[in-house]
Design a protein around this nucleic acid. Structure first.
Lengths: 144, 144
DNA sequence: TTACATGTAATATAATAAGTTACAGGTGGG
DNA sequence: CCCACCTGTAACTTATTATATTACATGTAA
């Protein structure tokens, strides 16, 4: 399968908080932009909050970014929303036969390679910030 | 979620075909090493065959590698078994609100970045061959 | 205190992967 | 030539998970 859409939604939320920073961003408003249920937004917002990326308070409408735009990388978001559960992008078959030389060593042979590949992907995400996304979106807008 | 274990199993199969090349590698034998059902092996084997990585014939027991060890990269296997369905590692929420400037541009902002991150991961896989895996496994064996 | 927000538990609903059964079709030794 | 045994594949079960939804507890401020 693929990486949870929570990641894309998390990026959407943070971008929206910036673009729409002069208004009150309630979970219902955000949900309308993402096109999903407000509870989904609140759950993701809770994860972003726990990671220190947004400021939200119980009972009071609206959320805002906790950091500067260019200090929030997509990797931060990715980790915040637990985009890859248990931090393992690749799954490995659980119990290969220990009586076979391949079976008893395949995991230790393959795990470091998988970790390296995952790491390469995550490094790419670390090079992009929410500011880049905001810029990309405003540029698109200005074309029309 | 994570990338299908078909990928790890595919690597396991190809490695086993090499390590065990002097014997007959029936789907049942391979399944015993992987610890799964023979039908699962035959299905994956079918994908590897279609990609030109293994030679198998209907009715006749045993399979063998179609290419040299060092000419089969993990990226080849990854693609062969369709490890990432529809070639999209990251999922994006489907229908954001077109009446919102963020909603109508988030996809085009995010897709190239996701593609780049996925590509970085796949490039890492392209640098490793089945030979590397075989070597890693025999080295592990010799330690004991 | 009331209207309305967030936080969160509990529960559908849906999609998907892996395992399994069953059987069609191919192959070659006896 | 036929029989034992393999691969190929369709159909189905089972388990797991993501997302959406309902319901409600809790917090806030006018």
């Amino acid at each position: 399968m693929s990486i949870s859409s929570r990641f894309a939604v998390g990026i959407h939320i943070l971008t929206l908080l910036e673009v729409n920073k002069d208004e009150v961003n309630s979970s219902e408003f955000i949900a309308a932009s993402v096109n999903t249920n407000p509870v989904v937004i609140r759950k993701i917002m809770g994860m972003l909050k726990k990671a220190g990326l947004v400021k939200v308070r119980p009972g009071v409408a609206g959320a805002e970014l906790a950091d500067k735009l260019d200090e929030i990388t997509l990797l931060d978001v990715y980790k915040a929303v637990d985009a890859v559960p248990e931090n393992e992008l690749f799954s490995v078959h659980g119990s290969p036969n220990p009586q076979c030389s391949v079976g008893r060593n395949i995991q230790s042979a393959v795990l470091p390679i998988f970790a390296g590949a995952q790491s390469a992907m995550e490094k790419a995400l670390a090079h992009v910030t929410i500011q880049d996304i905001v810029r990309s979106i405003t540029e698109q807008e200005n074309k029309n």
